[in-house]
């Protein structure tokens, strides 16, 4: 965090993309990951990760909303009255989420149907409010936009890892293509190559508690490699 603050002091020219800007994107992907380090936006990480497609769509949606809400808030930050700050931020987020929902409904209706209320729940994804308060309210639009992209990607990475594990072990497929396990089940493309056909799909991976365990394992691995993140309390 200290580093980020230091970077913000320099106030670089408006649209540059140097080392400092790159750090805004790469930092949240690992060291300052919104899900595993900042504990933000866990709720939807669990519900939408049964299938990889859903996780990818959700990741894109969240990245777009974080990036643009960060940008708009940074643009408006001097005009927003302090007393109604929270509501204004929420309205910006809710507006963007509605836009994303309308577009998704037009582009891919079945996915929209499957995600149902979880699109709406992007609004209360703590990543958004957290980043608006911690970053966009005190930074220029372009940098806030990059910070939004970074945090959105950090969130998507976790989502995708969890979804890969869950879909692969739970359904034996990835992006609906059968990979392991017995053929002639689930998907219609039975003539696809399938190996490890003795594998019986593990239903536990599809159930939502599995996502909890997988995130816990990700945290375990990440913190063993990066000892400074360990909780000392």
């Amino acid at each position: 965090m200290a580093e980020v603050q230091e970077l913000t002091k320099k106030e670089p020219s408006s649209f540059s993309f140097g080392k400092a800007e790159r750090k805004l994107i790469t930092d949240p992907i690992n060291d300052n990951n919104p899900v595993t380090v900042q504990i933000l936006g866990v709720c939807s990480a669990l519900a939408v990760t049964t299938l990889l497609t859903k996780a990818i769509v959700m990741g894109i949606a969240v990245t777009l909303v974080t990036a643009f809400s960060n940008m708009f808030t940074a643009m408006l930050r001097d005009y927003i009255p302090k007393s109604i700050r929270m509501i204004v931020q929420l309205v910006i987020i809710a507006f963007l989420v509605t836009v994303v929902e309308l577009i998704l409904k037009a582009v891919n209706y079945p996915i929209w149907k499957e995600l149902s209320v979880f699109i709406g729940l992007i609004i209360t994804n703590c990543i958004l409010m957290g980043r608006l308060e911690a970053f966009a309210m005190s930074n220029k639009p372009w940098r806030s936009f990059l910070d939004g992209i970074g945090n959105g990607l950090g969130y998507s990475v976790i989502l995708i890892i969890v979804a890969v594990v869950r879909e692969l072990f739970g359904k034996g497929s990835l992006l609906d293509y059968k990979i392991i396990g017995p053929t002639s089940e689930y998907v219609l493309n039975t003539n696809q190559i399938s190996w490890l056909s003795w594998y019986a799909t593990n239903n536990l991976a599809i159930l939502s508690p599995a996502a909890m365990f997988i995130v816990a394992i990700i945290i375990w691995v990440q913190r063993s490699r990066n000892r400074k993140l360990i909780d000392i309390s």
Binding site: T50, G170, S184, E185, Y186, V187, L188, N203, L204, A205, I206, L207, S208
Partner: peptide, 12 residues
């Protein structure tokens, strides 16, 4: 998902 939802997803 994984239990009741199988009525739609589990072709077998």
């Amino acid at each position: 998902p994984g239990l009741g939802a199988e009525i739609k997803e589990n072709k077998a």
